[in-house]
Each structure stands twice: as structure tokens, then as C-alpha cells.
Design a protein around this nucleic acid. Structure first.
Length: 881
DNA sequence: ACCCTCACG
DNA sequence: ACGTACGTGAGGGTA
């Protein structure tokens, strides 16, 4: 049977607030009420297992009751700020739980609850009302009962008709009569002075209702009582009216809209993390697996040895096999191979590395491009094998990439995560098998073989499921024609690596270190004390406590000392500028000099980054260990880091080709805005053109300030504009920013129309798409939480732009690799940095390479505006600008 | 493990 | 009244 749980939000929050000490989390936010409320919520959900849930809140201060009685709740103290500021947190928790909450102007939570309780009762549902307010007892029927909080937070007592009879000797409907006679201090309901609970109950037992008592004033015991009742008849009637819950609140939703499903840990966990509900976090994370009692069944396997290998050769004839290569660490450029497993879906083979190397049938199978292979992370698999001298080809399905293409935003794309989502049963997580952190151990023998057998078998089960899903959502072209080919291009890029001039890098490091030492001395002098400049905490104390500089911005944990704050403080104290410079130099040393030195190979002085192809929500790549997509360029001092990136061969050069304004061109294409398309068609400087349109001047009239502002607006448009964001970036007021945005949209109505359309599409479909049909789901787009919703709206505007640009350069990479191959060029693609490709090339090939790369990149897709690519070459990455 | 800060597009 | 520009990864400090 359906069960409806109605929670009196303010009442429970109030109770939690006073039951718990005034806790704060590390950011100084009070969380005790939210914490207690959440405990109560979880307890109720667990114990009642409702099919429908709603939490009702009081809306404003005035309600329809104030129309008849202005003093209603007049004695009540204002809700403390420490409590009211927690109400949004509570609502956030509810959103994460997927529990509806509601409040309505002029009505109290009680009335909303009453209205829905009656509806539920009429529909034959069991109704549970959770509150600390005894008024609600009047709603009890055979099907409606109340969980009344007692002491503490989660301790509650259940009231049904019998319990009310036992306690008061009354029917539930008589609770309002009780209030009518005795009043209620907390709501400032007067009742009849001098009549308390005892007298009221006695009267009601005899005369049943307020009206009954008033009809029999003559029969009342005691002269004083008679007088009081006589005198306060109207007040008693009014008090009863005030205490009566109004059960016909106009609601714009139905009971069916309150349907509640089980909690999704993935949505709740981040909220708990942020609020620092550690115990509750543990509870949701450990509870679930135990409850589900995962059906983990080890699949059978055979271990291949040098002696028995020949027995298994027939398996290698299969049309398609899954291949899983287990590594000793995630970084396959360094890790060793632990073992290899194969599966045809029925039989699993475990082959120790040394056996694999000597088993010719296997090495032939690996290298044969006609022998199809399913793998998880083809790129890592192929490189790990190659490092052990094992060539491999014929990969036709990457489970990792398929999972990513289906839904990039899913919380994890580890094999165990994918199995959890797409198959019944589960795969033990690597962390559980190997242990985590210090407890990590090397597996061997049977244990390792069994684990790998489970993994490789999972690949065979996953492929048909994922392939089917790719086709269902028309993502198969994106997967097979783009992401799969891209992974092969990236394999070669990573494998080749980038050469670094180690001596020069060390020299640069020494020079920077000297500079840093000088800065340190100066800063200590100017500050009058020595401290750790790298510690934002200590730095904050020096700047704001000791030197008394104004606090312009705070972070969750204290003073903000970020660059934009320091820049504004610089005129007030000369130490600030030194600190900014110190930060800059320190970053160069630790991240770039030391960071890069750590990643260089001993044999070749090369760096092999890993391009993550299944990480970003938009379809971009990212780069790790080290990140070669954020090498400094904006400031000259940092830009010099690029001097150490050199060609791997003598007489070769670095060639860089980058798209000019690809995101705004994509926007022009997607929006079909006339003005924007015209700007690109005529080859204009787009920021200047924007300045002309927004400020209504001709090309000569555009000042550098106007262009700077127009440029920021263009950035904002791409990011999903907000007046606040623009005001921050330009250091102007929000009003001024809003005016810019309005003028921009007036000048480019097509862009405005597009932004509205894409948000509307996201709201109705739940996702947005890129030019090559990549999808991004936006679960918060219809959230009632303003912040979540706004964020989703900006994402809806940004993702088709950023994601389509990512699609385009990926397409160009695939085509470029093909062109280099068929034309027999020796030039090699080394890096991709979102809108640019970096090659190393023999000096002799520079001209032909430049010509080809422009052709390929500009022709990667057909847009309504031209794509433009700039190329340059130099002896180092620094000079290729 | 998390926060702050900062490097890139 | 609310509070955020979009997408990333890395290093150092702190709890």
C-alpha cells in the first residue's frame, strides 16, 4: 500500500537546532539544524519506507490567520539567524535526496500538511506526519497518524486515535476545542484566561466542544469559572478557529508528484561532503553495499603455463576476444604488466607476462589487426604491452570510452563502476582487492588470476550492452568514427613523448630560485617578520592582522589572499606586489621546473604525458602526469618554460597550429546570428566588431578600453553569461555589467535566441548536445535551488560551444594523422592544447606540413562561417608562436 | 582528504 | 535576497 510521509519542516528544523549544540563546519557555517534534520529525515525514510514524501515549510511572516487576529504568534521571538540561514541547507539536502519540499505564501506548513493528509486519506494511503507541534494531532484518523518528536532529535512517539484517547480522553477533532479553551502561549492564542489543560479536559469530557461548553455556561462548576467563560466566549471561538488547520490550501501539484524513490548516493554524497556530515556520509556509503549483498560470483579460468599453452590455441581463433592487461600502477608509461587475461565470454585464460612473451600464438594474435579485441582503455593497454615488447592491434571496442560517450558525467568510469551501472551483479573494486594507500599489496597466483578473470569476463558482457546503448542514443558514430580513432592518435602522441632540454631547464630553475630567494628576503623585511609565504593562513595574518590591510574577500576558511585581491591591495603596501611576484616565481619552480624534471625519462629526457580521453564533461581532453596543457604563456617570465621543449631530432623544429576564435565561430554557426556570421565572413577582428556594435561606434571609434570590455563580454557569452561574472572580470558594478549584456543581446538577437533555445531544450529534454551529437545531461536544470539551476543553465549555454570545438579538433587530429601517414611524412603530432596542435617536424617538411595542417584543421567540419588556423614554426615551443 | 591558489584554453 | 562566470590538473598547506 502507498504510504505518504509529511514532514513539518520548520518544526523539525527548530527542534534539531535547539537539541544540538551550535555546530559549525570548517567554513564557519552553522550546520546543527541541518544535521539534526537530516538525521531525522534518514531515520523516517528508513523506518517508514514511504512511497511519497513532502516536507512543508512556513512561508512568510503573515498568514491568512493574521487577517482575523493580528496578534497571532505575536509573542514569538524572531527565528534566530543561525537557524534561518540553515533552511537553504536543509532544502539542498532535500533536493539531493529527491524529496519534494513546498511552502506557500499566506499559509503555514500545518495547512499544507493538513490538505495533503486529507487527500492521502481519501485516496486510501497510510499517512504519517512528522512534527513537534501538538496542533497537528487534530488531523489524526484511522489512516493518519503523527510521529511527535520527544526529547533529542530522532526520538519520536507515535500518536494514533487510541494514543490520543489514552492521553487526553479526546477524539482528534477535539484537539482544536482543547486549544480554544486553554489557548496556546507559543502561538499567542488566548483561550480562556484561567483555564488550563486540566480544566479544559474536564469540560470537554462533559460537553465535547467549545460550542457545547458555551451552550452550558450555567451548568459549569464554580462561580469564577462561569464568569470567565461568560466573559471570554468570543475569544474562545476565535481561539478554536485559529487552532483549526485549513485543509483546502490551493496546491499546484498532486500527490503523485510526491513519489519518492530510493536515495541516490551519488547525489547525496557530495552534499554531505560539503556540509561535512561525516558520520552520515559513512552511513550512506557503507549501508548500501551491505544491504544489497552484492552477488559476486567468480568466473572460472585457466592459468596458462609454458607447458600447457598449446591446449588453448583454439581460443585465439575466435572472431573477437576480450583482452585485459593488469598493470602495477595507473601510469602505464612507467608501470609494469602484472598479467594478461583473455575471454571469449565463456572461457577465461590468465597468462603471466613471462609466459605471454614466449607464447608465439598469443603474440601473433596480439599483433594481428584482423583479430578483434575488446579492451578497457585501449591506449593504456597498448602502451603497457608495447613497453614489454608486445605489439598489439585490432582493437575494436573500448569499454572505457563507450561508457564515457554514453554519459561523461557519471561519477566514475572505473571498470567496477561501469559493471555496477550496466550489469547485474558486480565486480570487486581494485581498491578492495589490492587494498588502498599504505595497505596496498601485490597480488599473485590464484588471487590475481581470479580477479583478472572476473575483469576480462566483464568486458565481454559489457560490450553488447554498451554497443546497444550507443546505438539507442545515436552515439555510435561519435564513438566508432571519432573517439575510437582519436584514441589511436593519442596512443602514438603519448608514446613518442616530448623532448626536454634538461640542462636548460635546470639553468632556468636555478635562475628562478635565486629570484625567489631575493623576493623572500625583501618580503620578510617589508613585513617585519619571517613567515611561510606559501601558507595562505600565515600570509593572511600578516597582511590583514599585522599590517591592517582591508579584507576585501573571505574564503570558507579565512581571509582570501588570491591574486585578484592582492592586485587591489597592491597600492596600499609595497609588500603586496612582492608577494604576487613571489607566488608567480614559486609556481614556476614547483610546478614547472621541479614538476617537469620529475617526469622526464632517464634514457631520453622525454616527457610522456597521459591524455585523459574519458574525463571532461564537455568532450575535451585533459592531460596529466604532467599536465602539458597548462604550460605558461601569458606572462613572459613563465613563457620561457616553453624554451625547454625542443624537437627530439637534430635539424627538426616545433610547429604549432591553432584555431583562431574557434568557440565564437562555433557560436556563430550554432546560433546563425547574422551579425556574428558577418564578422567572420568578412574576416574582422571579432572583439572590435563586438565593440562597434555594443558601443555604437565605427571601427576608428573603438578605444582599447572598449575592445577590452567587448572581449570580456564575448568570453562571458561563451561561458554562459551572468552579470555577476562579467562584473568580476571587468571590475565594474553588476548594473554596468547587466547593461553591457543587454546591449550585446540587442546587437546580436540571434545569439540571444540561441541561448534561450538551448536552455529551453535542456529543460525539456534534460540534456544538451554538441555538433557531433555528444550529450551532456543536466540533472539540475529544473531544480528549485536557484544556484544549482543557474549553474545548469550556464552549462547548457557553454557545453555545446566548448564541446563542439572539442569535436572539431578531434576530427582534425584523426584526419591529420591519416594525412601524415598516406603522404609518408616524418612529422609527428606531439600535443593537443584544446584549440591547437603541436608537431615536431624535419626542417624540410615545415612548408608542406604547414599547408596540410591548415587544410585539415580548417576543413575538419563544414560550418556556416570559415574556420581559421594560424601556423608557426620555431626551434623550440617558445619560438613557435 | 580537502582547501586554496594558479597555470592553461 | 540569493551568489556563479565555462572546462581542466598540480602543488603546498592544513587538519
Amino acid at each position: 500500500m502507498d504510504k505518504l510521509v509529511l514532514i513539518d519542516g520548520n518544526s523539525i528544523a527548530f527542534r534539531a537546532f535547539y537539541a544540538l549544540p551550535l555546530l559549525t563546519n570548517s567554513s564557519g557555517t552553522y550546520t546543527n539544524a541541518a544535521y539534526g534534520f537530516t538525521m531525522m529525515l534518514m531515520k523516517v525514510l528508513e523506518e517508514e519506507k514511504p512511497s511519497h514524501v513532502l516536507v512543508a515549510f512556513d512561508a512568510g511572516r503573515t498568514t491568512f490567520r493574521h487577517d482575523t487576529y493580528q496578534e497571532y504568534k505575536g509573542t514569538r521571538d524572531k527565528t534566530p539567524g543561525e537557524l534561518s540561514e540553515q533552511l537553504p541547507l536543509i532544502k539542498e539536502v532535500l533536493d539531493a535526496f529527491g524529496v519534494r519540499h513546498f511552502e506557500l505564501d499566506r499559509y503555514e506548513a500545518d495547512d499544507i500538511i493538513g490538505t495533503l493528509a486529507k487527500q492521502g486519506d481519501a485516496d486510501g494511503m497510510a499517512v504519517r506526519i512528522v512534527t513537534g507541534d501538538k496542533d497537528l494531532l487534530q488531523l489524526v484518523t484511522d489512516r493518519i497518524s503523527i510521529l511527535m518528536t520527544r526529547k533529542g532529535v530522532t526520538d519520536a512517539e507515535r500518536y494514533d486515535k487510541q494514543a490520543i484517547r489514552d492521553k487526553y480522553g479526546l477524539q482528534p477533532e477535539q484537539i482544536v476545542d482543547l486549544k480554544g479553551l486553554m489557548g496556546d502561549n507559543s502561538d499567542n492564542i488566548p483561550g480562556i484566561p484561567g483555564v488550563g489543560e486540566k480544566t479544559a479536559l474536564k469540560l470537554l469530557h462533559q460537553f465535547e466542544t467549545v460550542e457545547g461548553v458555551l451552550d452550558h455556561i450555567a451548568d459549569l462548576p464554580g462561580k469564577k469559572l462561569k464568569e470567565r467563560v461568560e466573559e471570554h466566549q468570543e475569544q474562545a471561538r476565535l481561539s478554536k478557529e485559529l487552532a483549526t488547520i485549513y485543509c483546502e490550501v490551493p496546491l499546484d501539484f498532486s500527490l503523485q508528484d510526491l513519489a519518492y524513490r530510493d536515495i541516490e548516493r551519488n547525489r547525496v554524497a557530495p552534499v554531505f561532503k560539503r556540509l561535512e556530515f561525516k558520520t552520515l556520509l559513512d552511513r550512506i556509503q557503507t549501508d548500501e553495499p551491505q544491504q544489497e549483498a552484492k552477488k559476486t560470483k567468480d568466473v572460472p579460468y585457466r592459468q596458462v603455463t609454458n607447458d600447457n599453452a598449446h591446449q588453448w590455441e583454439s581460443l585465439l581463433e575466435a572472431d573477437e576476444l576480450a583482452l585485459f592487461v593488469e598493470k602495477t600502477a595507473p601510469n602505464y608509461h612507467r608501470a609494469d604488466v602484472l598479467g594478461i587475461a583473455l575471454s571469449d565470454g565463456e572461457e577465461q585464460l590468465y597468462v603471466p607476462l613471462e609466459t605471454a612473451k614466449e607464447w608465439k600464438a598469443l603474440t601473433d594474435w596480439l599483433a594481428d589487426e584482423n583479430k578483434k579485441k575488446i579492451a578497457y582503455d585501449i591506449k593504456g593497454t597498448q602502451i603497457a604491452l608495447r613497453r614489454h615488447g608486445l605489439a598489439s592491434a585490432g582493437y575494436d571496442f573500448d569499454v572505457l570510452l563507450a561508457s564515457y560517450v554514453i554519459n561523461a558525467s557519471e561519477s566514475g568510469h572505473e571498470l567496477s563502476d561501469i559493471v555496477e551501472r550496466k550489469l547485474d551483479g558486480s565486480l570487486p573494486e581494485d581498491d578492495a582487492v589490492y587494498g588502498k594507500g599504505a595497505k596496498r599489496k601485490q597480488l599473485e597466483g590464484e588471487e590475481l588470476a581470479a580477479h583478472l578473470a572476473n575483469k576480462v569476463h566483464a568486458l565481454t558482457s559489457l560490450k553488447p550492452v554498451l554497443d546497444d546503448e550507443l546505438r539507442t542514443y545515436q552515439l555510435d558514430a561519435l564513438f566508432y568514427d571519432l573517439e575510437m580513432p582519436v584514441t589511436h592518435v593519442l596512443t602514438e602522441m603519448e608514446w613518442i613523448g616530448v623532448k626536454v632540454d634538461k640542462r636548460q631547464l635546470r639553468a632556468l630553475g636555478d635562475e628562478l630560485q635565486e629570484r625567489l630567494n631575493e623576493l623572500t628576503t625583501t618580503i620578510y623585511q617589508l613585513a617585519g617578520t619571517e613567515f611561510n609565504i606559501n601558507s595562505p593562513k600565515q600570509l593572511g595574518e600578516i597582511l590583514f592582522d599585522k599590517l591592517g590591510l582591508p579584507v576585501l574577500k573571505k574564503t570558507k576558511t579565512g581571509y582570501s589572499t588570491s591574486a585578484d585581491v592582492l592586485e587591489r591591495l597592491a597600492p596600499q603596501h609595497e609588500v603586496v606586489e612582492q608577494i604576487l611576484h613571489y607566488r608567480q616565481v614559486g609556481k614556476l619552480i614547483s610546478t614547472y621546473v621541479e614538476g617537469l624534471l620529475k617526469e622526464m625519462t632517464a634514457a631520453e629526457d622525454k616527457i610522456h604525458t597521459r591524455f585523459q580521453q574519458a574525463t571532461t564533461a564537455t568532450g575535451r581532453l585533459s592531460s596529466t602526469d604532467p599536465n602539458l596543457q597548462n604550460i605558461p604563456i601569458r606572462l613572459e617570465e613563465g613563457r620561457r618554460i616553453r624554451q625547454v621543449f625542443v624537437p627530439a631530432e637534430p635539424e627538426w623544429v616545433i610547429v604549432s597550429a591553432d584555431y583562431s576564435q574557434i568557440e565564437l565561430r562555433v557560436l556563430a554557426h550554432l546560433s546563425q546570428d547574422e551579425g556574428l556570421m558577418e564578422a567572420f565572413a568578412k574576416g574582422m577582428d571579432v572583439h572590435t566588431k563586438t565593440a562597434m556594435d555594443v558601443f555604437g561606434v565605427d571601427a576608428e571609434g573603438v578605444t582599447s578600453l572598449m575592445r577590452r570590455h567587448a572581449k570580456a563580454v564575448n568570453f562571458g557569452i561563451v561561458y554562459g553569461i551572468s552579470d555577476y561574472g562579467l562584473s568580476q572580470s571587468l571590475n565594474i558594478t553588476r548594473k554596468e555589467a547587466a547593461a553591457f549584456i543587454e546591449r550585446y543581446f540587442a546587437s546580436y538577437p540571434g545569439v540571444k535566441q540561441y541561448m534561450d533555445d538551448v536552455i529551453r531544450q535542456a529543460k525539456t529534454e534534460g540534456y544538451v548536445t554538441t555538433m557531433l551529437h555528444r550529450r551532456r545531461y543536466l540533472p539540475d536544470i529544473n531544480s528549485r535551488n536557484y544556484n544549482l539551476r543557474s549553474f545548469a543553465e550556464r552549462t547548457a549555454m557553454n557545453t555545446p560551444i566548448q564541446g563542439s570545438a572539442a569535436d572539431i579538433i578531434k576530427q582534425a587530429m584523426v584526419e591529420m594523422q591519416r594525412v601524415l601517414q598516406v603522404e609518408g611524412l616524418n612529422s609527428r603530432l606531439l600535443l593537443q592544447v584544446h584549440d591547437e596542435l603541436i608537431f615536431e617536424a624535419p626542417q624540410t617538411e615545415v612548408d608542406v606540413l604547414s599547408e596540410r595542417v591548415v587544410q585539415v584543421m580548417e576543413g575538419a567540419v563544414e560550418l556556416s562561417v570559415p574556420l581559421k588556423v594560424d601556423v608557426s614554426a620555431g626551434k623550440t615551443w617558445y619560438e613557435a608562436k
